[in-house]
């Protein structure tokens, strides 16, 4: 069944017809053309699809699009403001925290969610916050360093 809903994504309102069983991930990627949340498992197991949902990181593959109406959704596309990268993005570049890049959008959103709640996390807290975001390339080391660097300098 189709529902017409209004989604608040990256500060813009989108009116979209969505199927009841379609996930937020599918609608973001395939109907709104917002492709930074990645499809890694569609089962809540990899974190590649992480977006902020009212400021908290969630796996967008585990949220039905219809449920997302009335919530504030943020993706990586919203991080840079006026052509200026977000400190987390800068830090990811400086620390070489990116390899293939497929986990990167999810990592950035988890990191943003963490720092919003806990601006000065310990290394353990960072690792904990990233536990649901898998990365097969980097060994996580630089990602943790990059987040810590931002936390230490804010």
């Amino acid at each position: 069944m189709l529902h017409e809903i209004t989604l608040n994504v990256n500060g813009e309102l989108h009116i979209v017809p969505v199927k009841s069983h379609h996930t937020l991930l599918t609608v973001l990627r395939e109907q709104l053309g917002i492709t930074s949340p990645k499809r890694g498992c569609e089962n809540g197991e990899c974190g590649a699809c992480t977006v902020l949902y009212d400021g908290k990181p969630v796996n967008s593959c585990m949220v039905l699009a219809v449920e997302a109406e009335g919530h504030v959704i943020e993706t990586v596309e919203s991080l840079a403001k006026n052509g200026e990268l977000h400190p987390l993005q800068k830090s990811f570049i400086e620390h070489n925290a990116v390899q293939c890049g497929f986990c990167t959008p999810g990592m950035l959103m988890s990191a943003k969610g963490l720092l919003a709640e806990n601006p000065h996390p310990t290394e353990e807290e960072i690792k904990h916050a990233l536990a649901g975001n898998l990365c097969r390339c980097t060994g996580y080391v630089r990602i943790i360093d990059a987040i810590k660097d931002v936390a230490d300098h804010s």
């Binding site: 492709t35 930074s36 993706t75 990586v76 596309e77 991080l79 840079a80 990268l85 993005q89 990811f92 570049i93 400086e94 070489n96 990116v98 890049g101 990167t104 959008p105 950035l108």
Partner: peptide, 11 residues
Amino acid sequence: PRIDAYDKVTG
């Protein structure tokens, strides 16, 4: 810095 990093962190 990696040549592809900017595009990768901005989605």
